[in-house]
Simulated scan of single mutants.
Amino acid sequence: MANYVIGDVQGCLDSLLQLLDKVQFNSQKDVLWFAGDLVNRGPRSLDTLRFVHDLGDKAHTVLGNHDLHLLALWCNSGRSHESDTIAEVVNAPDGEELVDWLRSQPLALRLPATKNNLNNSLLTHAGILSQWSFDDALALSHEVQQVLSGPNWQAFMAELYGNKPNRWDSSLEGFDRLRLIVNVFTRMRMVRDDGKIDFKYKLEPADAPPELKPWFELEREFPGEGPIIFGHWSTLGQLKNKAGYCLDTGCVWGGQLTALRLEDEAIVQVEAVEPPLPTIP
């Protein structure tokens, strides 16, 4: 049995299938863990959702910002973009079933224990704040998951978009609290010296203004915890970092699709099969 953590697929199902063929994935015994952004921008968002959904308990995913964008469009709470490739999900005969499955997924998952350095590792799409323990992160993820999987989830989707508040405070309540939790887990890259999250900068950390630091460069208040495995940052330019691993290697932009095998920290990659999108966002 092997556990594979896979970076942002974004509707690039053909690349995913090549990657699974390369690792000789066996759906009877192996398990896949996706770092979010299963859909959008790539050409086969609907087929990707169907494929992961149909794997049942052999596949797990956290939500990424593009997955949430799909949920927002489903309930008419988001603006469509020229690069979106998720209308086919909204219009599919099984679209409601897939959306209901997607909105029941968490923002953070504890990965299975292995005998190497990846014991006690956490999976999320973008990262976590330095002042959150893994238990904190999982509890906050559960708060959002309860709302998204509940009967009034569309009310939250109408309040999802926005960059405020941009600093964590445990006393936050209501939609402000939920929005910040979602933004940390699915959009965060850089944090300012004063603790405020910057949601605009998307390029390499080396080119960032001096007052901005990658979230994983901040000193964690819980240094004894294991690695954090994430995606979301295709321009980061490195796989292994101070937090753990970033597995978004820009497949949808003509890069690679990357898997990390938890049992031995082996990195497996395939070159993107799909035609690349024209520019990095």
Score class of each variant (00 low, 15 high):
residue 30 D to S: 05
residue 30 D to Q: 05
residue 30 D to K: 10
residue 31 V to H: 03
residue 32 L to I: 02
residue 32 L to K: 03
residue 33 W to K: 02
residue 33 W to Q: 00
residue 33 W to A: 00
residue 33 W to I: 03
residue 33 W to D: 04
residue 34 F to Q: 00
residue 34 F to L: 08
residue 34 F to V: 04
residue 35 A to P: 07
residue 35 A to W: 00
residue 35 A to K: 05
residue 35 A to E: 00
residue 35 A to H: 02
residue 36 G to K: 04
residue 36 G to F: 00
residue 37 D to P: 04
residue 37 D to L: 03
residue 37 D to C: 00
residue 37 D to G: 06
residue 37 D to I: 12
residue 37 D to S: 07
residue 37 D to F: 03
residue 37 D to N: 11
residue 38 L to M: 02
residue 38 L to V: 01
residue 39 V to W: 01
residue 39 V to I: 14
residue 39 V to N: 05
residue 40 N to C: 05
residue 40 N to S: 14
residue 40 N to I: 08
residue 41 R to Q: 11
residue 42 G to V: 11
residue 42 G to D: 05
residue 42 G to I: 00
residue 42 G to P: 14
residue 42 G to F: 01
residue 42 G to E: 00
residue 42 G to S: 07
residue 43 P to M: 07
residue 43 P to C: 06
residue 43 P to R: 04
residue 43 P to L: 03
residue 44 R to V: 00
residue 44 R to S: 06
residue 44 R to H: 15
residue 44 R to C: 12
residue 44 R to A: 10
residue 44 R to D: 10
residue 45 S to E: 02
residue 45 S to G: 14
residue 46 L to Q: 09
residue 46 L to H: 14
residue 47 D to M: 03
residue 47 D to H: 06
residue 47 D to N: 08
residue 47 D to L: 07
residue 48 T to L: 04
residue 48 T to R: 00
residue 49 L to D: 07
residue 49 L to E: 05
residue 50 R to Q: 05
residue 50 R to Y: 15
residue 51 F to W: 15
residue 51 F to K: 11
residue 52 V to L: 02
residue 52 V to H: 04
residue 52 V to R: 07
residue 52 V to F: 07
residue 55 L to E: 10
residue 55 L to P: 14
residue 56 G to R: 12
residue 56 G to L: 13
residue 56 G to T: 12
residue 56 G to S: 03
residue 56 G to V: 14
residue 57 D to V: 08
residue 57 D to Y: 06
residue 57 D to Q: 12
residue 58 K to Y: 14
residue 58 K to V: 05
residue 58 K to M: 11
residue 58 K to P: 09
residue 58 K to G: 10
residue 58 K to W: 12
residue 59 A to F: 08
residue 59 A to N: 10
residue 59 A to Y: 15
residue 59 A to V: 13
residue 60 H to N: 04
residue 60 H to W: 09
residue 60 H to E: 07
residue 61 T to V: 13
residue 62 V to C: 06
residue 62 V to P: 02
residue 62 V to W: 01
residue 63 L to G: 01
residue 63 L to M: 01
residue 63 L to A: 03
residue 63 L to Y: 05
residue 63 L to T: 04
residue 64 G to T: 04
residue 64 G to F: 00
residue 64 G to K: 01
residue 65 N to V: 11
residue 65 N to E: 11
residue 65 N to T: 10
residue 65 N to R: 10
residue 66 H to V: 10
residue 66 H to Y: 10
residue 67 D to Y: 09
residue 68 L to A: 04
residue 68 L to G: 01
residue 69 H to W: 15
residue 69 H to V: 08
residue 69 H to C: 11
residue 69 H to F: 06
residue 70 L to A: 07
residue 71 L to E: 03
residue 71 L to W: 10
residue 71 L to R: 03
residue 72 A to H: 11
residue 72 A to R: 13
residue 72 A to N: 08
residue 72 A to Y: 09
residue 72 A to T: 15
residue 73 L to Q: 15
residue 73 L to F: 03
residue 73 L to V: 05
residue 74 W to S: 13
residue 75 C to R: 14
residue 75 C to N: 08
residue 75 C to V: 15
residue 75 C to I: 13
residue 75 C to S: 06
residue 75 C to L: 08
residue 76 N to M: 09
residue 76 N to C: 13
residue 76 N to E: 09
residue 76 N to Q: 13
residue 76 N to K: 13
residue 76 N to W: 09
residue 77 S to I: 12
residue 77 S to M: 13
residue 77 S to N: 11
residue 78 G to H: 12
residue 79 R to S: 14
residue 79 R to G: 10
residue 79 R to N: 15
residue 80 S to E: 14
residue 80 S to C: 04
residue 81 H to S: 12
residue 81 H to W: 06
